[in-house]
Design a protein around this nucleic acid. Structure first.
Length: 240
DNA sequence: GCGACAG
DNA sequence: ATCTTGTCGC
């Protein structure tokens, strides 16, 4: 996996915001992803505990979702959680995890936002610039935007608009989708990260859904990143 | 000034 | 995200 850093991570919140505004203009959100040619999809997540962050990337074969590789990376948590600046908290350890990846996934699904972000650069979009491959944001709650909400059935989808529609204002652009991954549970907030369009992002997440709320790759990464007091090494996992 | 706010 | 006991439900 070739990684392509665009800037260093030691920045102030003010500088972080300036960087996001610059990077937003470099995203490609109009590229279709042909699922019939997708072979490997990866899930990405980070857990934090006692000032330490652990990143996990789990690559799975598509569409059968067999685990091909799991990599972990650990480091001191370098940045506080600030809504809109999550990437500057998770970015450094995620970069290290990506460097340890031997297989090259055709697409990545992140636990967090893609372009459905105040400045259009959620963690999936931001790291997409590092990966230079298709990335999708799959958040469990809303960061920004407005939606009437999807229907109650599994697979139901509703548009996520940039803001709530106003009577005498132009219709807000669509920045993502709200997806009911399971009947009777809170929906997922899906948005394209980089090198992928919205329709493909929703199709990819939907295709990776199993019997749980989160798409399988993200669920696997979430579990792999879980920071327990003492964890025994798992087969195929790189040392933190 | 007030409310909102990925993980 | 993490801190935490029990509890309701398939």
């Amino acid at each position: 996996m070739g990684i392509h850093p665009r800037h260093h991570w030691n920045v102030t919140p003010r500088e972080a915001i300036a960087l996001q505004k610059r990077l937003a203009g470099e995203l490609r959100l109009d590229t279709p992803l042909d699922l019939s040619r997708l072979r490997v999809v990866a899930g990405v997540d980070v857990s934090v505990r006692a000032g330490r962050s652990r990143a996990a990337v789990v690559a799975m074969r598509f569409p059968d979702m067999e685990v091909l590789e799991t990599v972990l990376a650990e480091a001191p948590t370098p940045f506080p959680y600030v809504p809109g600046l999550l990437t500057f908290r998770e970015g450094p350890v995620l970069e290290e995890a990506f460097r340890r990846l031997r297989v090259a996934p055709d697409a990545f699904i992140f636990d967090g936002a893609g372009c459905a972000h105040p400045r259009g650069v959620g963690v999936a979009s931001h790291m997409g610039l590092w990966l230079e491959r298709p990335t999708v944001g799959c958040a469990k709650t809303r960061l920004t935007g407005w939606s009437a909400g999807p229907g109650p059935g599994r697979g139901d989808v509703a548009p996520l608009l940039a803001r709530e529609p106003a009577p005498d204002a132009p219709h807000p652009p669509q920045i993502g989708a709200v997806l009911r991954a399971r009947a009777g549970v809170a929906p997922l907030y899906v948005s394209p990260g980089h090198h992928i369009d919205l329709a493909s992002a929703v199709a990819l997440v939907t295709a990776c859904l199993g019997r749980y709320r989160l798409p399988e790759p993200v669920r696997a990464a979430h579990r792999a990143a879980a920071l327990r007091p003492a964890q025994t090494g798992a087969a195929g996992a790189a040392a933190p």
